[in-house]
Amino acid sequence: MATETDSSSEEGVDWRSDASAEEMTRRERYGEFYRRMVREPAIIAWSDLRTRVGIIILSVYLLMAALDVFGLWRNPSPNQAPRLLPPFQNWAFPLGTTQSGVDLFALIVDSTPFILLMVLAGGVWATTLAVMVGTVSGYKGGSVDTAITSVSDFFMAIPGLPLVIVLAITFSPENPILLGVILTINYWAGLGRSIRSQVLSIREESYVEASRTMGSSTFRIIVKDVLPNIMPYVMVNFVFAARYTIFASVGLYFIGVLPYTGQNWGVTLNNAYNQGGLFTMQALHWLLVPIVAIVGLALGLILVSQGMDRIFNPRVRTRLSGESESIEGEDDTTAPPGGMV
């Protein structure tokens, strides 16, 4: 009986130790994921001045979107204040008012969620499709490359602006996600060809050849070996696609192609221009406020994209890991036993 009890207790201890080891392994795995995917990119991004400024600018737009989504700021409506009130004279209306007494800051806040959704949809659609087309075409080659390249050439041959105008008039999109996709309907083609040229050189590298020799699947090679090397280029072009979406939408709203539903920076520009914002000093701020909002969002996206190169650059990541390990090693060697000074 004693022997059975001892053996059962030992089995219990072994089971608990195995469970503890498995739990530690899972905890270490989560810690490694957090370090590589969250902590290191955040440190690298924040160490670059351009990225810090870009994050701050984009945070302002996200804050304005939150103010509108959660109803923390008043809705724009006529006769809220005196007409054509200049900016920074009445802090209840910090950016001034329009000809009909509408709060300009409320107009910008009310437009921000729509603009951000549209920009995100356009950038994600164009970049994702371009990455899929470019990586598969460049890596596979042969008949697959020929077929995909022919489709890309067809879409590149279609004039972008006339196509977008025809689609906008036909569908009159009021949903920001649909509008973002329409505005970048053939933007992906040129980007896909550029990514293909990048992949053509990467697929001949020794590490890609080693993965093929070991029998790795095409999907795994593209995800593990190809995509990390083109991510800086992809992120920069994502920002270019997002910026193109902003300017295209504002331009089409300004000339009246897109439907005047709700508020939009292009609609505000159109109203300001039609009511003398370009010719009278009293209404000049009405024209400048949406222009500053457009330029500010584009600038924030560009600054963040410039910092993406540091985040995805393996040399910077390796250097950061080496510095972290050296700092930890110095702390271990210099700290006295027991933590006493």
Rank of each mutant, 00 (worst) to 15 (best):
L67R: 03
L49T: 08
I57Y: 02
G122P: 05
A92P: 00
R52K: 15
A45H: 04
P76H: 13
R74M: 07
A66T: 11
L116C: 09
D68C: 10
T127Y: 03
W73R: 15
L117D: 02
A92T: 06
A45L: 15
L117Q: 12
A130I: 11
L129E: 06
G54N: 07
L62S: 12
D103W: 03
L72V: 12
L116F: 06
P76S: 12
L84F: 14
Q89F: 04
G71L: 14
T112A: 11
N75E: 13
S111I: 05
L95C: 08
L62E: 02
R52L: 08
V53F: 06
A42N: 06
Y61G: 02
P94N: 10
W91E: 09
N79T: 10
M37C: 00
W73P: 01
P76M: 13
I44D: 00
F114H: 10
V60E: 06
I108C: 03
I56H: 01
R39A: 05
V119S: 04
I55V: 15
E40I: 05
A42V: 12
A126C: 12
L107N: 08
F70E: 08
N75F: 13
Y61R: 01
I44G: 00
A42K: 06
F93I: 00
W73F: 15
L117V: 05
V60A: 15
A92Q: 09
R50K: 14
S47M: 05
D103H: 05
S111K: 06
P41H: 11
V102T: 13
P76D: 12
Q99M: 12
A65L: 08
L107R: 12
T112S: 10
Q80I: 11
P82H: 09
T51E: 04
V109Q: 02
P76A: 12
V60R: 07
A65T: 08
V53N: 04
M37A: 09
F114D: 01
G71E: 13
P82Y: 13
G122T: 06
V38S: 00
L95V: 09
L129K: 03
V102K: 02
G71I: 14
E40L: 02
P82E: 15
L116G: 04
E40H: 03
L49C: 02
I44P: 00
P41A: 08
S59Y: 03
L63S: 12
W73N: 11
A65I: 06
M37N: 05
A130C: 13
Q80D: 09
A81I: 08
A121Y: 04
S77M: 14
T127V: 11
A130V: 10
T98F: 09
F114G: 03
A106E: 05
L129F: 14
V119A: 03
L62V: 14
A121L: 04
R52S: 06
S111Q: 08
V38D: 00
D48P: 00
Y61W: 11
A42D: 02
I108K: 00
R52I: 05
F93Y: 11
N75R: 14
A121C: 07
A66W: 04
L107T: 11
P87N: 06
N75G: 09
A126Q: 05
